[in-house]
């Protein structure tokens, strides 16, 4: 699996989405900026990947904290223009922390200004390659993916990973349009000619048809069992919280689930249980799977 020389993927973990640097002669474009608390390292990685070029544009795939958290810092450092998917523009303009899923999921980002928007179907050039913006609602109802038909590359954001896709936020917030949208998105993606995917998280990968099939199997399971979808989301979101906080006293996590809207609402609406009871179950399953550990009464992220 090789990408054209002018594309550099900066791959980290789950808290910071992949950053993609495109060399364009003396200039460069960046896609997505990682999580707020990682912005210092993001700047250092981007500077390394620029290899002396001037960063002139930052483009986002969607509005979540692990993709936009470094936008303000990148703009301060480089003075670049920022382009966002048109559907997320109002929430960014008003810095609507609920719509951006910041307050409701207890996540952080820094307000930023943008210069232009990208609409589904728009064509743009990055790294001397023609890309078409594709609307890929589901995980985020306004998300865009970018497809290069000639080079057969797909920048999929969190609409498609090697093994799955991002949490179905709309459904978790009581909007039943999320899963049908994700199905339409995957069925649309299945028809694309793609040789390499640069996902929002994880290494670039080549086995495209298999990845779409795996995502469809996962989606079918979620369609059959909303509780299964909700359980999977609670585990993913709590792991994300722990990656940022690194550790939390076990005794405080029930209260955290009661206070943070997405944990509280999903506990009541999907499991019909008190948030603390759902928290206890989520913790036990994550400890059992080895995703989190317990030390001195604290629940701790992998790597301490």
């Amino acid at each position: 699996m090789t990408l054209p020389q002018q594309i550099r993927v900066l791959e980290r973990g789950w808290l910071s989405a992949n950053n993609i640097v495109f060399h364009e002669g003396a200039e460069a474009t960046l896609v997505d900026s990682g999580y707020l608390t990682h912005a210092g390292q993001t700047l250092a990685l981007v500077a390394q990947a620029l290899e002396g070029r001037r960063l002139v544009r930052l483009i986002n795939t969607h509005s979540h904290s692990d993709h936009i958290g470094g936008n303000a810092a990148v703009r301060r450092a480089h003075g670049c223009r920022i382009l966002v998917p048109e559907g997320m523009a109002p929430a960014v303009e008003d810095w609507d922390e609920d719509a951006l899923l910041l307050s409701s999921a207890h996540q952080q980002a820094e307000p930023f200004a943008f210069d232009a928007t990208i609409a589904p179907g728009d064509e743009l050039e990055m790294g001397g390659i023609r890309w078409r913006a594709l609307h890929v609602p589901g995980h985020d109802m306004h998300a865009l993916a970018y497809h290069a038909p000639r080079e057969r590359i797909l920048i999929s954001g969190d609409a498609l990973w090697r093994d799955g896709f991002g949490v179905m936020f709309a459904e978790l917030h009581g909007d039943p349009s999320g899963l049908p949208a994700q199905r339409r998105t995957l069925e649309m993606l299945r028809e694309l000619d793609v040789g390499v995917v640069i996902p929002g998280h994880g290494a670039p990968f080549a086995d495209y048809a298999d990845a779409v099939d795996r995502a469809l199997v996962r989606l079918a399971a979620f369609e059959q069992s909303p509780e299964r979808m909700a359980k999977s989301a609670m585990k993913a979101l709590f792991t994300f919280t722990l990656l940022e906080k690194r550790r939390m006293p076990r005794a405080t996590i029930g209260e955290h689930f009661s206070q943070v809207a997405i944990f509280r609402d999903v506990s009541r609406n999907f499991f019909h249980k008190e948030p603390a009871a759902v928290a206890a179950q989520v913790i036990d399953e994550l400890l059992g799977a080895g995703v989190l550990m317990e030390q001195d009464g604290d629940i701790v992220a992998r790597g301490g």
Binding site: G13, L15, S16, Y35, T37, H38, Q41, A301, G303
Partner: peptide, 8 residues
């Protein structure tokens, strides 16, 4: 990857 999401 050895990344554990500390990234500082």
């Amino acid at each position: 990857s050895p990344c554990i999401d500390v990234c500082r």
